[in-house]
Amino acid sequence: MIALRGLAILLLLQIAGEGLIRVLGLPFPGPVVGLVLLLIALRWAWLREPVAAIAEMLLTHLSLLFIPVGVGVITHLGLVSQFGWQLLLVIVLSTWTGLAVTALVFRRLLRSSDLPNETS
């Protein structure tokens, strides 16, 4: 029940986000505005327990939620057969670039501030 209350809160915030975008003509996806609204709404202590319950549930099983769109690759087999290995190469190389740059920059910036001793 507590998680359901949390889900109701998240859905209401998402709808509020979608509404704000349309009314104000903001260039963001609805759920992102919902995220910002949640950060503001969490000032109210009574929201925290239900939000925590549903957030932990959704975020632990986040992988599951990607399966329906992932399967959608079968509708783009034409593109895949035309640009298959180039697309894969682009995605693999850019992902490695992104991972490496993020890790190296984050490590450098943390070191220049105060780094807690959390090496593996």
């Binding site: 998240l10 859905l11 915030l13 919902g34 950060l39 925590a52 975020l59």
Partner: peptide, 21 residues
């Protein structure tokens, strides 16, 4: 059928506010 799983992506993005908070 899979859309019932798919729609949860929206609230999951909103829920990302929780670890940030």
């Amino acid at each position: 059928g899979a859309q019932f799983v798919h729609v949860l992506l929206g609230p999951a993005v909103v829920a990302l506010g929780w670890p940030l908070w």
